[in-house]
Design a protein around this nucleic acid. Structure first.
Lengths: 191, 191, 191, 191
DNA sequence: GATGAATGAGCGTTCATTCAT
DNA sequence: CATGAATGAACGCTCATTCAT
């Protein structure tokens, strides 16, 4: 196994186990054994468990962002752009439930809050795209005049809630329902 | 300190520490010391940590439910009823951020998922009220024809997201913004 | 409940619980609740748990000794005297299994060894009777010329072993088997 | 220290401390420190304390059995066979007092009773040898017609009692006394 | 005198991290 | 480099003992 393959195995194992059992249910020894490496080896790639956790979060973001931007055209009308981004986000989460579960676990830790706070100040990855969309929408008087954070809440809150229900098998989400959900989110933010 | 005061102190200490640091950041010894009691004392009131956690969740529910139903009139129009419930829910969370944080932690634990699943089957406390409202709304063709779980997501998702941002000081939520937020949620679910 | 009744209840409860569950399975709180008194009350009668344990042992000895001496006639022949004492001892243990179990637990604790050592030096209750019997037997050349401790071992060892098996339901001991067992013990020590 | 030496050290430390102080007087931390290892290390070799205790018992049995069978010839006369086994058993206990004390502690625990009960049903290690001997003896009309459990009591009861006295320094047991003791046991069971 | 709630030292056990091999 | 055995601090929990009522 090459060096980078090993790293990948570790990250994959951590994702699976943490998504499934949460942070407390994921001892380093279990991650190592699922990854097929020694426990000490993990510390060659990540200084400690917190850093592994943060790096994994990073990786997920780096998969998500290209996914939702694929085919995105900033020149299209606001509504169309929103429907594209919302649908892509929803689809990604439905198709990558481990990633979604992991991100939820992460945000629900002291660590996650720190990161979110840091994001507010600096550049925010895909956040920027949504921020630009909402600010365009406001200035074109297509979107409600609300703080961007609230618009985010109106747009993403329902999407993530639907994904949660889907993962817990409370709601079966198919393409049709995905479209309707995102459309309803648009109703929430549009003027 | 009287017997019931001691119990209350324990519950309050647990609420504060768990809301702030999560379940892993809240050892029994820390809860005990914050409550001003010995560690063993907690076990006179709660058989073990899990039961303390569940009891605290129960207590929060028992505070929340009466709060949001105060002044609720099931005979009023759907929209009005929704605005009442949504605003009350949002206000409760804003005014009781520890309760909100705690409930989030709880739902994000294996324990919480088990409870949610159990709720789906049996009677669900305040859930019933919302379910009735949404089903009324659908049959009166005032609300979108979507699964109740999705309507819940559209209604509560944004509310909880706004509360999260408020607690993290990302958004300052005043009465006006609360009203606008709930109104936007209504736009999301109404036909 | 009078003062001495209360003491008796405590001792009885301790006997039952310790005989059944051993010393670790017998917290003071459990003894108190079985005795129908408060936990603190036990400390009015016994300075601490060790002293309760020792006092209970004492009480059992004080029941056993009169029982085996009932009808004992030191003037009768050695063999007859031995059969009397052996049968009485065996019968007592079979009929009072809690006492027997307790004594076994006791002897198997650091405490029990200390007591046995103390006994060797001072006067030893019923031990004296047996010692006298064996020494008579040796001087009359009816009993093997062995140290008294070894004669005790030959006489009591099998009796206690049989009782253990009876209590664990490995052997059903009736009057006939009791007689045969004691007779065999006699064969062990007689010339 | 090699891996298997470490395991051995742990077992030896546990034997010493439990033999001396009983199960409650032998916390894991004390065993670890006597063994010269960290407390957590014990759990690499034994899943928990109960399993350590059971494994140690097993090891003692596996030392005892070969010892008493060394030079045993099933073709010799009953009496000779009994004297061989009895003397070997007695010698083993005298020479390995820690083993003896440990086994006594073990049998006097809920765990030990469970094992004894299990033994009654299945094959019983060295028990089988003694059982065969006694049954041979009965059918050859050399041994008293008593239940095997009672014959065991007559044979082993005195031996273990003598060992107890020896360990507590009540009786000094030398080769001559060992021989006499076993001979007396034979008198107890022979016709 | 009697109570039982309160205490906290001490238990068995886990697991992030280190380091000899 | 990679390993995984070793570590020990920290956890949840029990229970003998105390003491305010």
């Amino acid at each position: 196994m090459s060096k980078s393959e090993k790293r990948e195995e570790i990250v994959r194992a951590a994702l699976e186990i943490i998504a499934e059992h949460g942070f407390h249910g994921a001892p380093i020894a279990m991650i190592a054994s699922r990854a097929g490496v020694g426990a000490g080896t993990i510390y060659r790639y990540f200084a400690n468990k917190d850093i592994l956790i943060a790096a994994l979060y990073q990786e997920i973001e780096e998969r998500l962002y290209p996914f939702i931007l694929r085919g995105y055209e900033p020149a299209r009308p606001i509504r169309e752009r929103f429907l594209h981004l919302g649908a892509a986000l929803l689809r990604y989460c439905i198709e990558n439930p481990l990633d979604f579960r992991y991100v939820e676990q992460f945000h629900n830790s002291p660590y996650g809050a720190a990161l979110r706070r840091a994001r507010l100040l600096g550049e925010g990855g895909e956040r920027e795209t949504f921020r630009a969309l909402f600010e365009d929408g406001i200035s074109q008087q297509v979107v409600k005049e609300l703080p961007v954070t609230v618009l985010c809440a109106l747009a993403f809150g329902p999407i993530f809630a639907v994904v949660r229900d889907h993962i817990l098998d409370f709601t079966r989400v198919d393409d049709a329902l995905m479209a309707k959900t995102v459309a309803a989110c648009w109703d929430g933010i549009r003027r």
